[in-house]
């Protein structure tokens, strides 16, 4: 698994390091820490220091015998291209620091595409919503356009339930596997909520998807709970359960959920949720 983590110096970034360490440690993932700055001339030293500090913090979560990553040979990032600097260390798994110039959301999506990552992770502010310093709607824009699943960590409390909201759109194998890893990592229960429009032709398709998922999990001997909601019941339901659960949304191209959770809704959800939001691809 390859994980991209976009970070800055704010608390919402600092606070996710423990979760990232747990995720990386359990999945033995290749990890890229990405920092984004405005200027293109050279990597800003304060950002380099922040990322190096985060790297040390992450390494400190592992006992020396369990650390799958190597130390960097130096603290200097090499220029990879214009406004693009990087340093890597290859142990059993690879750990990379990358700094790019430009917009946070755009560069995160670009690096996610380039490295073919499986999961993009980022933090999100508290009561003030999910605005990153100097840029609006960063988590929302990444969630909308990233080529991979996106985990927005709002509050780093342990949750015992993952609620996956599903409609008639196709469920990818990758997205199921991503959920499975989060279920394992959090030792959480999994609830699958099917969404249908009250009067629509998709009812049978939603049920078909749910039967497929049920069979999949039954074969794996994993207990999941299913629930069926009408589309207008989804928003209050999600707002309610997000207090104690990680909410996972399948957002395929044809997704009804994508329509339901319009930009403003995802943004609102990110604002109101007290836990984490996983957008599945």
């Amino acid at each position: 698994m390859k994980i991209l983590v976009t970070l800055d110096a704010k608390n919402y970034s600092k606070n996710i390091l423990k979760d990232v360490a747990r995720l990386a440690g359990n999945t033995l993932a290749d990890v890229v820490f990405l920092g984004v700055q405005d200027d293109t001339a050279s990597p800003r030293q304060s950002l380099v220091n922040t990322l190096l500090k985060y790297q040390k913090d992450i390494y400190s979560y592992f006992s020396p015998d369990d650390l799958p990553y190597a130390e960097f040979s130096s603290d200097r990032l090499e220029e990879k291209g214009k406004g693009d600097w990087t340093i890597s260390a290859k142990g059993m798994k690879e750990f990379t620091l990358r700094i790019k110039s430009g917009s946070v959301a755009k560069q995160t999506i670009a690096v996610a595409e380039e490295m073919n990552c499986d999961l993009a992770v980022l933090g999100c502010g508290g009561k003030a919503g999910c605005e990153w310093d100097g840029e609006m709607n960063v988590p929302l824009r990444i969630a909308k356009d990233a080529p991979c699943s996106v985990l927005v960590i709002k509050q780093t409390k342990k949750t015992n339930q993952i609620v996956s909201i599903l409609d008639h759109s196709v469920v990818s194998q990758d997205s199921l596997e991503m959920i499975n890893q989060l279920v394992t990592l959090n030792e959480a229960g999994l609830k699958i909520v099917g969404v249908q429009k009250k009067k629509d032709g998709h009812k049978a398709e939603v049920e078909k998807r749910m039967v497929e998922l049920l069979r999949y999990y039954n074969d794996l001997e994993i207990n999941v709970w299913v629930k069926l909601l009408n589309s207008e019941e989804v928003k209050p339901y999600v707002t309610n359960i997000s207090r104690e659960s990680i909410v996972a949304l399948w957002m395929g191209k044809e997704s009804l959920i994508k329509l339901l959770f319009s930009q403003s809704m995802v943004d609102k959800l990110l604002e109101t949720t007290q836990s984490s939001l996983l957008i599945l691809r």
Binding site: W225, V226, K227, L228, L229, N230, E233, Y237
Partner: peptide, 14 residues
Amino acid sequence: GYDLYIEGYLNTAD
């Protein structure tokens, strides 16, 4: 003369 009747009922919010 059955002892038990079983049917499926999907959990909803209603």
